[in-house]
């Protein structure tokens, strides 16, 4: 029994999260009515995350360029830095590093906010006023996350590549022209779309986990803290896991398509 219980509650939690996500996605018709709240959330989730995302991704790009550049320099191929940076940023680092930043900055606070509403009976109050809490509380947050997650990923990817270009120019001696010439070969349009799809999936995961943990919060301040912590742990885990799945699928699909032609 003692062994079973955590598993049971994990399955229940996953089930609740999935149902909540589907219910909220099904309310896409409410987006227009909730537009003011969605804009507010876009500001909280998106605009306010611009500085931290930029700073974070800039340094990720810089350190990545530096590390790979040192290796490439041994073979006299520092120009290849551009290619590696762009392909890694577009396909991998851009989507999930941005997702990490957002989980830490937005997901945790979203869970805490909804959790506080739950334990202070605000969610119940909405329900007895016949205001659907999913429509009123969850939909704007999910929508804001789904819009701003990919948007910030674009920003983060661009800034990350810029950081790489900066290090390449200043520390590795790669001219901007060379960098751009090699950068073009780093990613094709399909890679970019795939990167954006990843960003969308990660945003959906994080928002669903945050909202679900908030809605299931119990027992006062302790429960709110737990909801926030669980959100970060679960969302990070799911992000790296789904990232692996998506990358594997993408490679398989690509080699399959290559085999056809």
């Amino acid at each position: 029994m003692a062994l079973k219980l955590p598993l049971v509650s994990a399955v229940k939690g996953a089930g609740y999260t999935l149902v909540l996500l589907l219910e909220a996605l099904g309310m896409i018709g409410h987006w227009w009515r909730r537009r003011a709240a969605i804009l507010t959330q876009m500001h909280v989730i998106g605009t306010q995350s611009v500085p931290i995302t930029s700073f974070f991704m800039l340094l990720v790009g810089m350190v990545f360029a530096l590390q790979t550049g040192i290796e490439f320099a041994r073979f006299g191929q520092t120009n290849l830095v551009a290619l590696v940076i762009v392909s890694a940023m577009v396909r991998e680092l851009g989507p999930w590093m941005t997702a990490f930043v957002l989980i830490a900055r937005v997901g945790s606070s979203m869970a805490a906010e909804i959790g506080t509403m739950k334990v202070s009976e605000e969610i119940d109050a909405l329900e007895v006023m016949s205001v659907n809490p999913v429509s009123y509380v969850i939909v704007p947050r999910l929508a804001g996350y789904l819009i701003m997650g990919p948007a910030l990923t674009i920003l983060g990817t661009v800034v990350g590549i810029a950081g790489g270009a900066l290090v390449a120019r200043v520390q590795l001696g790669v001219t901007l022209d060379d960098f751009l010439r090699f950068a073009e070969r780093g990613a094709e349009p399909l890679d970019i779309y795939w990167g954006l799809l990843k960003a969308f999936v990660f945003s959906m995961l994080a928002a669903a986990v945050a909202c679900s943990n908030g809605m299931r919060a119990t027992a006062g301040a302790v429960g709110v803290g737990r909801a926030s912590r669980n959100t970060v742990v679960i969302a990070l885990t799911l992000t790296v896991f789904f990232n692996y799945l998506l990358t594997s699928f993408y490679r398989m699909a690509k080699s399959f398509i290559a085999g056809l032609s």
Partner: peptide, 11 residues
Amino acid sequence: GVLFQSGALIA
């Protein structure tokens, strides 16, 4: 109409 213990106003 329900008055909750802490008022349950939307923050």
